[in-house]
């Protein structure tokens, strides 16, 4: 079983700061991390490999520093990693990203046929979740998004059994291999990596590819050039006008509030006191 996990380096949006004057990202404030969903994707691959054996490759597109997220994936348990890094990739939106990644996947597939591709549900910097299904289309394999469980992998029949999260519930899907999954966080918990993985990761040097390493690339589909969407403008979201302040002592405030609420009492379900 050969699983490829696509991983992205993203700024940590939890601590991100925006310069209010220029509406740009304050890079200093945002350390780069492995997209949290992608960490779960790698962990999911590790759990599958425990049952089936095989190889986990990780693939990332980004600047040279993105080797850090490949190393992080090795810590979690991936066997090897590839980074595609080239000026020509810069400024890619999801369409151009899935194109570039699919070129790398073709190359990986030639060397060792790929049985499954796993992506995160979305990357926290863009929150789009469009790259995974895009790759699936380009590789012409079925995508299964929002996966919360991979319950069975049948290598003989070349099928997998998957739980896919829906708005209210889930569905059980059987998909043929090869296929592409995008995973939710609840699919697993990231395990604390064992020391040998840490040492392996510290030593690991990912393979780095540039555009010139690929065959049959249409350069017009890469990077900014290949991106149909552009950012028009950035603005701070309009703040709605505030309403009325209820003034007075605490008791007066509570009384006024009660009056307001009693006007809406049909919405309330007042429990009888026991």
């Amino acid at each position: 079983m050969h699983i490829v996990v696509c991983v992205k380096q993203v700024p940590d949006t939890k601590i991100i700061k925006i310069n209010p004057k220029t509406n740009t990202l304050d890079r200093r404030s945002a350390p780069a991390i492995l997209n949290p969903y992608d960490a779960h994707a790698v962990q999911a691959a590790v759990s599958i490999r425990e049952k089936t054996g095989g190889t986990i490759s990780v693939l990332s597109m980004g600047p040279p520093q993105a080797t850090a997220v490949i190393k992080k994936s090795i810590e979690i348990g991936a066997d090897r990693g590839f980074l595609i890094s080239d000026r020509a990739f810069a400024g890619a939106d999801t369409l151009a990203t899935s194109y570039a990644l699919s070129k790398a996947l073709e190359k990986i597939n030639k060397e060792m046929p790929v049985d499954m591709i796993i992506c995160g549900k979305h990357a926290i910097d863009g929150d789009t979740g469009q790259v995974g299904p895009g790759i699936a289309r380009r590789m012409d394999i079925p995508p299964v998004t929002n996966v919360i469980e991979v319950s069975e992998v049948n290598l003989e029949e070349k099928t997998v059994l998957i739980k896919r999260k829906l708005s209210n519930g889930y569905e059980l899907i059987q998909a043929e291999l090869p296929c592409l999954l995008t995973v939710e966080k609840e699919i697993n918990q990231i395990e604390y990596s064992p020391m040998p993985n840490m040492i392996k990761a510290a030593r690991y040097e990912p393979v780095i590819w540039a555009v010139s390493d690929f065959e049959n690339v249409d350069r017009s589909q890469l990077g900014l050039k290949g991106s149909p969407t552009i950012v028009g403008k950035m603005f701070t979201p309009p703040r709605p006008e505030g309403g009325k302040k209820i003034e007075g002592s605490v008791d007066e405030q509570v009384n006024q509030l009660m009056d307001i609420l009693m006007e809406k009492k049909d919405v309330l379900t007042l429990q009888s006191s026991k």
Binding site: D93, G126, D127, G129, Q130, P133, R137, L166, P228, T229
Partner: peptide, 20 residues
Amino acid sequence: PNGKDLASAVATDLVTGLTA
């Protein structure tokens, strides 16, 4: 989940932009 999934796949084949 389904809307996003569908739109992403369609955008790839139509080769057009998709805002999420």
